[in-house]
């Protein structure tokens, strides 16, 4: 308290006007980079293989736009929705008291994280080879029937022809979503574990059920930890939709660009177009991620902002303060 009086009484010193430190290294770096950039632009402009006009002409054609909207954007949205939902469930299973649920959760994440996505998609794309029909009913029905002397017993509830249900799109969606769920489960689990145990205790002491305490107390706080890697997962997913080429899913951006390239023998311009499209789409996602992180920082960044505000006030008053602690 004494120092506070002292600083307010004493006159404010003159602002510092000093000669800044020189950074010659910076200028050399800038010069080198400028030369490299000029060389890059030179290649872009003069190398005929880029064929810019051809690329611009083709990259906005309706089949490509349709592929972008359905195979890339819609697929990303759906795969992430399913992946996140299933991932939360598996994370909760893995943190459950029930050892069987824990085991199943572990097995799931083990399998889907161990198999590469590309391979998984190829498998799902060809699953029709395994069954021509997908049916739900009593398992081992025919075998059980034989045990009791009934020939060809079939206890099937309902079924589909796999070609109807496992279209390329569905197979691709299934492959991406199931694989994503495994990664999301790990992210959500880390998020839930990051929440202080005292929060669970306080919620339990208030009489909240397990579901309520997860939904109202733990998950909203876990979100701070979950959101940034989920943003990265979404961006990775958007890029991984290009793997749908191996299912194959024809209504998809990269499939379409690749097809145009091969048909016209102008492969390189079409791959450049793919780069530009993915750059554009991921940039939008990055912006979205920024706003989401801000939203879920509620109660945390406010603290930070309040602290910052306080610091400015104290700075303006010439180092007084003390409103920080009490209030």
């Amino acid at each position: 308290m004494k120092s506070e009086e002292a600083t307010t009484v004493r006159a404010r010193p003159e602002p510092i006007k000093a000669v800044p430190v020189r950074h010659p290294g910076r200028w050399i770096t800038v010069a080198v980079l400028a030369v490299l950039a000029a060389m890059f632009v030179h290649v872009l402009v003069t190398n005929k293989a880029f064929n810019w006009s051809f690329m611009v002409d083709k990259m906005f054609r309706p089949p490509i736009i349709e592929g972008l909207l359905r195979g890339t954007v819609l697929m990303t949205v759906l795969a992430m929705l399913i992946g996140v939902t299933l991932g939360v469930l598996i994370a909760i299973m893995r943190l459950s008291d029930n050892p069987i649920l824990r085991g199943v959760g572990w097995l799931y994440t083990w399998f889907f994280r161990a198999v590469p996505r590309l391979v998984l998609l190829a498998v799902f794309g060809n699953i029709g080879i395994l069954w021509s029909r997908i049916e739900f009913g009593v398992p081992f029905d025919t075998q059980l029937g034989q045990l009791f002397g009934i020939d060809n017993l079939q206890l099937r509830l309902f079924g589909f022809s796999s070609r109807d249900i496992l279209t390329g799109f569905m197979a691709g969606l299934l492959g991406l979503a199931l694989s994503e769920a495994a990664y999301m489960a790990e992210i959500v689990r880390a998020g839930i574990q990051s929440v202080d145990g005292g929060q669970t205790e306080a919620a339990q002491a208030l009489g909240m059920s397990r579901g309520q305490l997860l939904r109202r107390v733990v998950l909203p706080q876990a979100m701070r930890v979950i959101i940034p890697p989920t943003g990265n997962e979404t961006i990775a997913m958007l890029k991984d939709t290009s793997l749908l080429l191996y299912v194959p899913v024809s209504v998809e951006l990269f499939f379409q660009l690749d097809a145009v390239g091969k048909r016209t023998f102008q492969i390189f311009p079409m791959y450049v177009a793919a780069c530009l499209w993915y750059l554009f789409l991921t940039s939008i996602l990055l912006a979205g991620q920024y706003f989401l992180e801000r939203h879920f920082g509620k109660g945390y960044d406010q603290t930070q902002r309040a602290r910052d505000r306080l610091r400015t006030i104290t700075a303006e008053q010439g180092g007084g303060g003390g409103q920080g602690a009490a209030g």
């Binding site: 202080d196 005292g198 929060q199 205790e201 306080a202 919620a203 339990q204 002491a205 208030l206 009489g207 107390v217 706080q221 109660g299 945390y300």
Partner: peptide
């Protein structure tokens, strides 16, 4: 637990 209130050393408010 609903009819038993508890106050903790470290407050444990929902942040």
């Amino acid at each position: 637990r609903r009819s038993i209130g508890m106050v903790f050393q470290r407050f444990n408010l929902f942040p």
